[in-house]
Amino acid sequence: MTPEVKAFVESYKFKPMPDMTIEEFFKLYNHEMWRTCSDCGEHFDLKKQLNHDRCPKCNSKNIK
């Protein structure tokens, strides 16, 4: 590894990560795990929900 590449890698690994909430993390990363609630018929992206085992509309656990 050249000294320039080594210096770049060393400086890059200490860059601060931006502050983000759990909501922002789920909205930005790995979308499109679609689920449908069997009780109310709501179709939603599971990765955008904070509560991953309930329907965001009716709060039912009966999702598929």
Rank of each mutant, 00 (worst) to 15 (best):
M1A: 05
T2E: 08
P3K: 09
P3V: 10
E4A: 08
V5P: 01
A7E: 14
F8S: 03
F8E: 07
E10I: 05
S11D: 13
S11K: 11
K13E: 13
K13G: 02
F14Q: 12
F14G: 13
K15A: 14
M17V: 09
D19I: 12
D19W: 06
M20T: 04
M20F: 15
M20K: 14
M20Q: 12
T21G: 12
T21P: 08
T21K: 10
I22K: 15
E23R: 15
E23S: 15
E24Q: 15
E24K: 15
E24L: 13
Y29K: 14
Y29G: 02
Y29T: 10
H31A: 11
E32I: 01
E32W: 07
E32P: 00
W34R: 07
R35K: 14
T36L: 04
T36D: 00
C37L: 02
C37M: 03
C40D: 02
C40K: 01
C40V: 01
E42Q: 06
H43W: 02
F44A: 00
D45Q: 07
D45H: 05
K47V: 01
K48F: 00
Q49H: 10
L50T: 04
L50E: 09
H52A: 04
P56I: 01
N59K: 09
S60L: 06
I63E: 00
K64N: 12
K64F: 12
